[in-house]
Structure formats: structure tokens, C-alpha cells
């Protein structure tokens, strides 16, 4: 579903060159729940951003459903992100000036969907994450766990094939973290949504069906690969 071929990401300033990703090759299959672990600064989030077409690799390329996206225009990339990918961020990134339901409608704003249909799908997404009672609240009226649930509902509203979650439980206590993890697991198991999650939490990672470890910009272990070798 998503292929990363020989991905390199190098950040250059006048005095220093930092290799964030070093020749990464990775393939994520449809319906997988992949977790990516590694120490801070090892390139996990960079990988996720490149996978989500938010950032460009210095070399190598990304292919979605077998189609390389290297030559895609800004508008075409935006369309791909809108239709295929949903993002969940560690710090939620909700728009404070919009109500919960307006936040959830966001991915549908960039599609030809009527206002009524948008609202219906946003409410359905909120129901999936158990937040039907908070639709008219604003983000600053919610707890961290509730905000993350709104963020997941927003990612779901566009009915994407893949959800990329960057430390979705990183800012939450263990109870709330478990709640969020349960929602993601349910989405993967019941609806077949492909999920790639960056996490620092080994317990969370072990609940997924594939664990990739990163170190210094390189992929050092892949649990599915290990299983195959065993």
C-alpha cells in the first residue's frame, strides 16, 4: 500500500549536515497495524511525515498503491493526503477557534461534499470515538484524552485507507492512553484501517501486529521480518 524506496533525508545548514533517514526501504501492507519505535531523534517522525506526503525525501521515493508520487504537484499531493491518509498527532493539533464537530469536518471541507453530508459523517466519526455528547464544545473545554479522540474522529471522517499516528498517546496518562489505543486497535481489527503509529511505549507497540525499530535513521528490526526468519 505504501512503499518507501531507498529513502534518505538529510538536513543541511551552512555548518552541519544531519542524516535523519539513511536508505530506508519499507513496505506497509493494507490492513496492517505497524508500530515504529526508537530513541528520540532517530528519524521516526521524519519517516512518518514522508510516508504521509507532508515532507519530501532528499533521495529515494514514496509510492502509494504502486504509484510513485515524486512528480506529483502540490494539488495532487494534497488530494492524495485528503483521500487516502488521516493523521493523528501527539499534540492533537485541533483548531481552537472551531467547535469539535467543525474540527472533525475538516478533511471533508476539501472534497465536494454537501454541508449536510459533512455534518452527518463528522457526527458518525465522533460516535465511533464515543464523543457524541461533545460535538458543540471547543477543544479547550476538553481533556487531553477527549482532544485526542476528536483528533482520531477527524482522521476517520474522511474515511481514509491509512491512519498515520505520531505518538498518539504521548501526552496522555496510562488510562487515557489505553483508551486511545483501544480505539485504534478496534479501527484496525473491525474496519481494516491500515495504521502506522510512532510510539515510545513498548506496551502499546506490542499490541500491534508489526513492530519496526529505528536507530540513527536506519531500520534495525522488523518484527514481521523476524517472525518470517524464525
Amino acid at each position: 500500500m505504501i512503499q518507501l524506496i531507498d529513502i534518505e533525508k538529510v538536513y543541511r545548514t551552512k555548518t552541519i549536515e544531519t542524516v535523519a533517514l539513511n536508505r530506508v526501504n519499507l513496505q506497509v501492507e493494507r490492513g496492517e497495524f505497524v508500530s515504529i519505535m526508537g530513541p528520540s531523534g532517530c528519524g521516526k517522525s521524519t519517516l512518518l511525515n514522508i510516508m504521509g506526503l507532508l515532507d519530501e525525501p532528499t533521495s529515494g521515493y514514496v509510492a502509494i498503491d504502486g504509484q510513485p508520487v515524486k512528480t506529483h504537484s502540490d494539488s495532487k499531493l494534497a488530494k492524495l493526503r485528503n483521500e487516502k491518509i488521516g493523521f493523528v498527532f501527539q499534540s492533537y493539533h485541533l483548531i481552537h477557534d472551531l467547535s469539535v464537530v467543525d474540527n472533525v469536518e475538516l478533511p471533508l471541507l476539501y472534497r465536494k461534499v454537501s454541508g449536510g453530508e459533512r455534518r452527518k459523517r463528522a457526527l458518525e466519526a465522533l460516535e465511533k470515538v464515543g464523543l457524541s455528547a461533545r460535538t458543540k464544545h471547543f477543544p479547550n473545554q476538553l481533556s487531553g484524552g477527549q482532544r485526542q479522540r476528536v483528533a482520531i474522529a477527524r482522521a476517520l471522517a474522511g474515511n481514509p485507507e491509512i491512519i498515520l499516528a505520531d505518538e498518539p498517546t504521548g501526552n496522555l496518562d496510562s488510562v487515557m492512553g489505553d483508551e486511545i489505543m483501544d480505539i485504534l486497535l478496534r479501527l484496525n481489527q473491525e474496519e481494516g484501517t491500515t495504521i502506522v503509529m510512532v510510539t515510545h511505549d513498548e506496551n502499546m507497540a506490542l499490541k500491534t501486529n508489526r513492530l519496526i525499530r529505528f536507530f540513527d535513521g536506519q531500520q534495525v528490526a522488523d518484527s514481521r521480518v523476524l517472525e518470517a526468519q524464525i
Partner: peptide, 12 residues
Amino acid sequence: GVRKAFGASSKT
């Protein structure tokens, strides 16, 4: 950033 992530192009 959020709008771009969820499908807004630069033109939008």
C-alpha cells in the same frame, strides 16, 4: 499545517 495535512493545497 493541519489543513495541509488534511488535504488543503497551497492555493486553497
